[in-house]
Simulated assay, not measured.
Amino acid sequence: MLPDPGVPPGPVPAPATSGQTPATGGSTSDGGTASTSSSCLTVAGALAGVSFLPLSAAVGATDSADLDKAKAAIREAMSRVPDELKPDFAKLSEVVDAMGGDLSKFDTPAFEEAVKPISAWLEKNCGG
């Protein structure tokens, strides 16, 4: 196969970036730190892991697997979230645990109250 005449021979230059990559532990291109980016991903992932609960309860879902998934997401996040969020995740865990295995016991106001400071942290530290 012949080389493309429109492409110069030789190595392809790496794309330009601003800041260091998160893998280096330095700053990211948006000025945040790699640890903040990691925390944002952890917190957002944990919230995503429980965000389906209100909908599941509203449609009358009875499968306790939804609660098990939410509890697992919270447990996993508890060891990785910033220390300032650990009490908020503990409260969220209490709200989810209070349902036992029964989504009909879902307490929307308590859930929303437990999620509120976590969502506020994401907004403040991760840009929403």
Rank of each mutant, 00 (worst) to 15 (best):
S35K: 10
A73E: 04
V7L: 11
V115K: 03
S37A: 04
V96F: 07
V115G: 02
V7F: 03
D68R: 12
S38F: 08
P13M: 10
K86S: 02
K86W: 07
P109W: 11
E112D: 15
A61L: 15
V95P: 01
P117T: 02
W121P: 00
K116L: 11
S56Y: 12
L103P: 00
S39V: 07
F106S: 01
G32M: 09
A73G: 06
G19P: 04
V81P: 00
N125A: 05
G31E: 09
P82R: 08
D4S: 09
E113H: 03
P117G: 06
V50L: 01
T28I: 12
A34D: 07
V95C: 13
A110M: 08
T21L: 10
F106C: 04
L55P: 03
S104C: 06
P5R: 01
E84C: 04
A77M: 13
F52E: 10
A48I: 13
A46M: 12
S29G: 14
L41H: 07
D97G: 07
E84T: 12
P117R: 01
P13G: 05
F52V: 09
P15L: 15
A34W: 06
R80A: 15
L67N: 01
A120R: 08
K69E: 04
R80C: 04
K124N: 08
P87D: 10
P54A: 06
V12K: 12
P82G: 03
F106Y: 09
P11W: 10
A65E: 02
A46G: 12
V59G: 11
F111H: 03
E84N: 07
P82D: 09
V115S: 04
L67Y: 04
T108G: 05
D66L: 13
S93G: 14
G26N: 01
T21K: 04
E76S: 14
A120G: 09
D68I: 15
A65Q: 02
S56F: 08
G128K: 11
L41Q: 11
A70W: 15
A57Q: 04
E112L: 13
A110G: 02
S38N: 11
D63T: 03
T17G: 06
G49R: 04
A98Q: 01
A48Y: 15
P13T: 12
A73C: 01
P3A: 01
K116E: 15
S35Q: 14
S79R: 08
G60Y: 07
